[in-house]
Design a protein around this nucleic acid. Structure first.
Lengths: 347, 347
DNA sequence: CTGAAAGCGCTTACAG
DNA sequence: CTGAAAGCGCTTACAG
């Protein structure tokens, strides 16, 4: 015997109404030409019976599962909730479910995660690649969200422009010496953000970049960043490339007795939950994940619906970069403009 | 015509090898009695062709999709990554995929999210209920992760015991006046944590509870918590019921010039990413989400495999509470033991 | 406007 | 040990 589902199926509705399954199917989907009256009767009866169409049956017949995969470099990444929520929302609006797959750990796990999704029959997937990874293709359409400078990127926040926003903000407050704080030198996203900051600086401004990954390799993980010393060197603004690093900087500075924002400013990236909760709250730059997700998903869905045969293509979207929005929460300039330091530097 | 998938199917393998599909199926699944030789040949050929079984075909035939649903109260919750990762890992190990559904916003959305998963044909689901919600049943087996005091809870961290750990830790350091900081008075989880702290206090200790939701209702969201005043009232320990609130407390205290951990201690709950990143890092209590997920998923899978007909039952597990583990990162007692205050209090 | 029929890919009870 | 056949629930091209 074959296993049967609990609920009613098309056949039950059909026989109970004395019509054919084809007609019921057509009536419910609104595709075939069925008389308005019958449509009405069928829909009513289906609702009454609590009919839930079988995805399996539909998938087998149409060759499409109605499910998208979401591959993340590391689910534990604090940015993940926003991304997942946005993708789920966009997919759901387009009538798709979202299957998650974490590429926990290494690059091999990413490939494995992708394969797992293919085995589950996803119609396409959204991949946020691991750092340094380059997705060539899978067995289905793929949308990539990373950064505009990543080859093959489908859509993403314009991280470079986000950096420009930060630089502009700090410049406007009168800061001249900026310490950029990143935690991964390999990250395309972080490099774009840093590049944006650097190129957005006005004449006379100076920046230095502190890569935490490098520092920790030398001094052990969790080591102090030595920011108090940087303050004494005349840095008045600390521009972290992610809110998490901003938080690290903020608390280290506070602990050293340096007042924020009176003495120095701290900015972040991403507008994560805690940015607004800490004292003082963080100036940061927000990506419009809903927009990004919407673009990625609709590009994906377009490809899925268009291509008759499921192929492994990298999907492209018309809009590839979505502007980041500056959220100003700290707005003090440097307390004692580091004039002397600057002058010395110019000598 | 019916749509066909890109890859090879059982039929192709069968004809290409001159055997029947039944034999191929049996060989690949290892179920029927097929000669070792043939099994070998068939598996080899299948691998060569890059055969990927059709979930749709299998699901239609067996009545099981091999997919579990995960319903979250709010994906944007910072705890979500850990949960999702753990569930995905456990499900994946058990051979299941995970479909996510966010019950964004209100309670109605939760019901809708559940229905959406049912429509997608999940075999069962893990629900982390919204505060104050009570899941009665869905159209499939359901495992609930909340807190042991929630009726119907399948498995969860032992939040009460976590509170005991915190109280014991603070008592050991010599703290006598503890301010418990929560952000949601309705939350079962937070109430259990607070209850644990209170009941774990030694004689002579005193606690007060600050509910941020209540405070913000009066003074507007994002208002200061007035912790400096609490310090002057003799409180030396601030036990937040979540790491986010701990972070809020930590930075507010630092901003007020109060040194942590020299002057006062701050503890959290959950060991979220930032607990170890801030200065000073937070003492907190960690749930073993991997263990919890493993228990929830295996209870769910057991029910799915046992019940021949898919019913809407709340799944139960043998182990309902998983111990929380104290992570000590701050270990100073109160600088000036609030002796006088205590004495006054006893008068 | 409605229905009969084929077939998507799989598994399983049964016959040989 | 192997194969023929049925059937899970659906959709679609075709016939009426």
């Amino acid at each position: 015997m074959t296993a049967s589902r609990p609920g009613p199926n098309l056949n039950r509705i059909a026989t109970s109404l004395g019509v054919s399954v084809a007609t019921v199917s057509n009536a419910l989907s609104g595709k075939g030409r069925v008389s308005g009256q019958l449509v009405e009767r069928i829909r009513e009866h289906a609702a009454e019976l609590g009919y839930v169409p079988s995805q399996a049956g539909r998938a087998l017949r149409t060759g499409r599962s109605g499910v998208l995969g979401l591959v993340l470099p590391d689910i534990a990444n604090p940015l993940f909730p926003k991304i997942a929520q946005a993708i789920e929302f966009a997919a759901s609006a387009a009538g798709y479910g979202v299957l998650i797959a974490d590429s926990r750990g290494d690059v091999a796990a990413q490939t494995e995660a992708i394969n797992r999704l293919v085995e589950r029959g996803v119609d396409g997937m959204v991949i946020i690649p691991r750092r340094g990874t380059r997705i060539s293709s899978a067995a289905c359409p793929v949308a990539i969200i990373d950064t505009p400078s990543t080859p093959g990127n489908t859509v993403s926040a314009d991280h470079w422009q986000g950096g420009l926003e930060i630089a502009g903000h700090l410049a406007g407050l009168g800061h001249r010496r900026i310490l950029i704080i990143g935690n991964n030198q390999e990250s395309n996203v972080q490099n774009d953000r840093a590049g944006g900051i650097r190129s957005g600086m006005r004449p006379g401004m100076h920046s230095e970049t502190l890569w935490i990954d490098q520092l920790e390799q030398e001094n052990g993980s969790g080591c102090p960043l030595g920011l108090a010393e940087k303050v004494s060197q005349g840095f008045t603004a600390f521009a972290a490339l992610s809110d998490l690093q901003a938080l690290r900087a903020l608390t280290e500075l506070q602990q050293a007795g340096i007042n924020i924002p009176t003495d120095v400013s701290v900015t972040g990236f991403d507008d994560l939950i805690w940015s607004s909760v800490v004292t003082p709250s963080l100036t940061t730059v927000r990506m419009d994940m809903d927009r990004i997700a919407e673009i990625a998903v609709s590009a994906l869905v377009d490809t899925i619906k268009t291509s008759s045969i499921r192929e492994g293509v990298l999907v492209t979207a018309k809009i590839k970069r979505v502007a980041m929005q500056l959220i100003v929460r700290q707005s003090s300039g440097p307390a004692k403009p580091p004039q002397k330091t600057s002058e010395m530097e110019n000598m």
